[in-house]
């Protein structure tokens, strides 16, 4: 009943190996790579593909072991226990992921709703910063409160300290976050990290995704206002920033972002980006087709 190039019993082994490789060495390599900042959108898709493939492999490995038990010939107690354990593992991974996504999403939405109420009550509007809410504060800051009903918020000190074109660049950057719903992309990686904080490189994936969406927003802003106002705004607002609970955030630092603005725009790397998209597709498709198909055929033949 073999319907693929690989023996069916090899499926769990291959999927487990893939899951481990995709959760450990692959993200470690991608996190160290220098090229993602040249093609941030493609790199973000590759991170998503990598993460999705890792999760699917882990689930597939557990599920395939568990179902082989049902169809297998050698039914002794040891095998049954092994397969039961694999089944429980699969369910646990899935449940943890769904639960983490649910609790994180719920708490984020609640915090954003509360913050939006506060902003709406305490901010004012100023024609110098069209479309934004202004908070009176000595500190210079600007942020986007994402969501279906998003807000761009900037402090009065930031409005004062920025030149007109710099202010436009900041607002375009934040608008890009709100428009493209970058928060949802980051939320996916955050959910994975909170489900499996100790496993693999979930933290590296989250940090990388946070950095890449900053780059995407920078690119959107530079298309509209040019690179220079954005670079100047970064210097002005970074200078004044107090390092609070200092976390070594990777790739997002203002220094990297300014250096990046001096490099050629991503549009000059179209061919490279296309190659990364193809690799991302392959990462999800190839394991699914070559490994899972024979196993699925085997299972359906047994039914």
């Amino acid at each position: 009943m073999l319907s693929g190039p690989l023996p069916v019993t090899a499926t769990p082994l291959i999927l487990t190996t893939m899951a481990l490789a995709l959760a450990g060495p692959a993200p470690a390599w991608l996190a160290r790579a220098k090229w993602p900042r040249r093609v941030p959108r493609a790199a973000l898709v590759l991170w998503q593909a990598l993460t999705l493939a890792a999760v699917l492999s882990a689930l597939g490995a557990g599920a395939s072991v568990a179902t082989l038990a049902v169809h297998g010939d050698q039914l002794n107690l040891g095998m049954v226990l092994l397969h039961a354990a694999a089944f429980v593992f699969t369910l646990t991974v899935l449940a943890r992921l769904l639960w983490a996504a649910h609790t994180l999403g719920t708490s984020l939405r609640a915090r954003r709703r509360r913050h939006r109420q506060l902003v709406d009550l305490l901010s004012h509007i100023d024609q110098r910063a069209p479309g934004a809410r202004i908070l009176d504060a000595r500190e210079t800051f600007a942020y986007c409160l994402p969501g279906l009903s998003s807000r761009l918020v900037i402090s009065s000190s930031a409005v004062d300290v920025l030149a007109d074109d710099e202010l436009r660049a900041v607002l375009e950057h934040e608008r890009a976050h709100a428009r493209a719903r970058h928060d949802l992309v980051v939320e996916g990686f955050a959910a994975l990290h909170s489900a499996f904080p100790w496993f693999g490189r979930s933290r590296a994936a989250l940090d990388a995704a946070s950095g890449l969406v900053e780059m995407l927003a920078d690119d959107a802003a530079r298309r509209r206002t040019g690179a220079l106002p954005l670079g100047r705004a970064l210097v002005r607002l970074a200078d004044a920033t107090v390092p609070a609970g200092t976390l070594g955030s990777s790739g997002t630092s203002p220094l990297v972002r300014i250096q990046r603005l001096a490099e050629p725009a991503p549009t000059t790397h179209r061919g490279f980006a296309a190659a990364v998209y193809v690799a991302s597709m392959a990462l999800i498709m190839v394991p699914t087709l070559t490994v899972a198909t024979p196993w699925l055929a085997y299972v359906s033949a047994g039914i």
């Binding site: 915090r111 942020y143 409160l145 994402p146 934040e174 928060d183 970074a238 920033t241 609970g245 200092t246």
Partner: peptide, 11 residues
């Protein structure tokens, strides 16, 4: 909950 223009963690 917020997406900042400059991360406060930057030093």
């Amino acid at each position: 909950a917020l997406v900042r223009f400059v991360d406060t963690a930057s030093a």
